[in-house]
Write a protein that binds this DNA or RNA. Structure first.
Lengths: 184, 184
DNA sequence: TACAATTTTCATATCTTCCTAAAAGGAATA
DNA sequence: TATTCCTTTTAGGAAGATATGAAAATTGTA
């Protein structure tokens, strides 16, 4: 019986490894670094509150690396610091709600990547406007470029404001998805 | 008057550069390489059909690099080969419709990144099932993990099938966005 | 078929990103 | 305050990704 139990733990560990690997490869999709994803994957699948040493050990990565990436995860809000009384070490635990995690990641990406893009695009549009270019703005090459920048800007602005609304809370996201799922 | 015209072209070129730079930094968001994005950005903003030599010249990148990235862009469907009669060279032109470009990119990412993830996740779920783990599957550590994998799988499956539906054509995407925009 | 004009491929070089190990920094205990 | 335990920072190195240039392949023309 004892042997079988060890066997099961072994199997679990293998699945965990597979999951962590998967999470790692997904990292670019979420816009986070591979190690960051890996650590998060481990915390998510085990559901455990783990110390830095456990994580280092389990994933075979260095202390500094774990430290940096854990603090990023905490900063993003995907992982929380947990204190165990009588223990000096910090423990870390992942959020458990998938919708919430998704919302957080998407909101972060929006803020960090999309918002600056919109700013730059607006500047481009500005520079192609009649105010800046004078009469030349009405002529072909300038008009063409203005229109292309503008189309893009309209598109992104629309997407952005939708995201704004639906990423405010994971509840709202869920609602939106439900609406879409109904529409046949 | 001639001087002024040159001046305007100069200004246009500057805006183009800014735009190309922006596009380049956006590349990770779209899941394409920086140079690929850069080239696409140039073709999009100018709206022109350009030859490899023009692109090399304009962006200051090598022939091989341009060649490889152009063929990827064509493969993705973001850029089209154009023939000019009486000219042996190939010319390349970007799609102009923003919605269409977005749809293509999203569909590609889905196929190349999300689909393999779903496959792996299903395998993880499988390995945590009672069939594989026997009685142990009912006990805590396994149940916990099973549930987490399953939650994630449900979430991604739902997102995936939504994407499936709305990315079939940019028309449908537009419709979906309209529905969402209406919901206050 | 031979030639000329283009494009593609690929080995090499370059650059960037990420990771490690060690040292510095901080906080809890005695 | 000194000591110990734990975390963060950092300089340097390794791995991986990207770019280059020249040779090979392809395509069109005579």
């Amino acid at each position: 019986m004892k042997a079988r139990k060890a066997d099961v733990l072994q199997r679990l560990a293998e699945v965990e490894d597979e999951f962590v690997g998967l999470w790692r490869t997904m990292s670019s999709l979420w816009g986070i670094s591979p190690t960051m994803a890996q650590i998060h994957g481990l915390l998510y699948i085990t559901g455990a509150a783990m110390s830095m040493d456990e994580i280092m050990e389990r994933l075979g990565i260095s202390r500094g690396n774990v430290s940096m990436n854990l603090s990023k995860l905490v900063e993003w809000g995907l992982v929380q610091r947990v204190h165990k009384k009588g223990d000096r070490r910090d423990y870390y635990r992942s959020l458990s709600d998938v919708w919430e995690m998704f919302t957080i990641v998407a909101a972060q990406r929006k803020r960090r990547e999309i918002d600056p893009i919109l700013t730059t695009l607006r500047r481009c549009k500005e520079e192609l406007s009649p105010e800046k270019l004078g009469a030349a703005a009405a002529e072909e090459p300038a008009r063409q470029r203005f229109e292309r920048v503008n189309n893009l800007l309209s598109f992104l602005t629309m997407m952005d404001s939708l995201a704004q609304r639906f990423l405010e809370s994971h509840r709202r996201l869920r609602d939106a998805v439900e609406i879409l799922a109904q529409e046949s």
